[in-house]
Design a protein around this nucleic acid. Structure first.
Lengths: 242, 242
DNA sequence: AAGTGGTCTAGACCACTTC
DNA sequence: AAGTGGTCTAGACCACTTC
């Protein structure tokens, strides 16, 4: 992926944006970027379109391309940087991935909700995986995931202490690239408070999702409970492509 | 929008998919589509990429393009009913729009953040509009919005007691069709608790956004603080188009 | 070997904004 | 008039899958 031109341009531009290289929030025009990077304008546009879809920049025809001030105002936490949608890739900070503390790992029968979400039959089993995610020594997320055992029957204790999405990508050559997400807020439970070092008045952010493999197979149902300070979900919404 | 080639192709393909014209779930290859539609392969790819981003199809290099069976089976989780992205259209319940209680309406100078977000110059003014949104007698959202006065200099007290986005659509023939949203959670303030009938341990969900008119003009910066029970932000995420 | 999607180019023309 | 992003073309070559 890194050998692809538009990805190189994208990474470089993102770095320059975060380095505040454009204090007036205006990027060079596409034709200048094309020349300075030595690539076609199409490749520049492709990189810019992705940055726009990620909410980092926006474009105004006739005027130029601008850094989204909302995006830089606070530190964005959840950003889809990697080759898949997993927590490990999305919560990188300065290239450092969050570490994992395994809380629970077992195989259970899929209940009705899980059967429907993961296209399973009665009697099918799923892994239940509960993990605490830690970023720079701060536990910030409790993650409970359910994965059909038939998709990765060989999953071991060691595997679930690392990135499962990366594991699947490497071993199965099938990345998790799509998801339906629901983002919510809720009061913290006693368990949340203990694990995430929250006061009783401090809430959790909740991200619930169904994750799909690239071929459309539902891979995991996951509920993530976050220290509210670490949840900032950015999205670009457009009615154009309806 | 309908005069754009890739949109025409997109609409037509979507219609053909829903008409079950591809019972084997396989679409013609891109070069054939290019020929049969009489457009370039790039335009075909553009339409297909959008359909893939919407979760309707998926592509497999070397194999072809396929209808996503999951999509036809499952009802889409998130559906935007209205013609714009405003609260009035998005929070309809059984066709009933939320009502509005105006808390504050004044004209103030745009601070630096607003100048940057709304393309304003020092000395430009914005409306500051604070409103309480009420659904079936329950106040659920405190909304603070900032809109440049030069976009709608004639805005009156009566107008801000209704849907501003619908007003702009009717009067200016320019709909709010794009936005960058940030979704967060936070402890409730005393003000939140009073207006939204929350206990001190109950949080708010926060949706912060810049809303754009169809031509890309930033129209409003808005911060919405919601009773957490009423915030559920749904999104379909895909790395395909990125 | 043939088929199919992915990436990329160089350039044309259009639509809108700014000067 | 000049600048800037949007759309589109025709074609080249690459990577992966299927036969």
């Amino acid at each position: 992926m890194a050998d692809v031109i538009y990805m190189k341009v994208l990474q470089d531009l993102k770095h320059r944006i975060y380095s505040n290289e454009f204090p007036d929030k205006k990027l060079p025009d596409e034709r200048s970027l094309s020349e300075s990077y030595g690539v076609s304008r199409s490749s520049i546009k492709r990189a810019l379109n992705i940055l726009a879809a990620q909410g980092i920049i926006f474009k105004k025809r006739g005027s130029g391309t601008f850094v989204n001030p909302l995006y830089l105002k606070n530190q964005p936490i959840f950003h889809n940087e990697g080759s898949n949608l997993g927590v490990t890739d999305s919560y990188q900070i300065d290239g450092q991935a969050p570490s994992i503390k395994l809380l629970n790992f077992q195989v259970v029968p899929a209940n009705e909700d899980l059967q429907q979400a993961l296209f399973l039959s009665p009697g099918d089993f799923v892994y239940q995986i509960e993990r605490l995610r830690i970023l720079e020594d701060v536990p910030f997320m409790i993650e409970t995931g359910f994965i059909p055992i038939k998709i990765i029957p060989e999953l071991s204790l060691g595997d679930v202490e690392g990135s499962i999405f990366n594991y699947v990508e490497e071993k199965k050559k099938n990345a998790v690239t799509k998801s339906f997400m629901s983002v919510m807020a809720a009061p913290s439970t006693a368990n949340d408070q203990a694990l995430l070092a929250l006061k009783p008045t401090e809430p959790v952010g909740i991200m619930e999702g169904i994750f799909f493999l690239d071929d459309g197979t539902p891979f995991e149902v996951s509920t993530m409970r976050l220290n509210y300070k670490y949840m900032r979900y950015n999205a670009f919404v457009s009615l154009d492509s309806e």
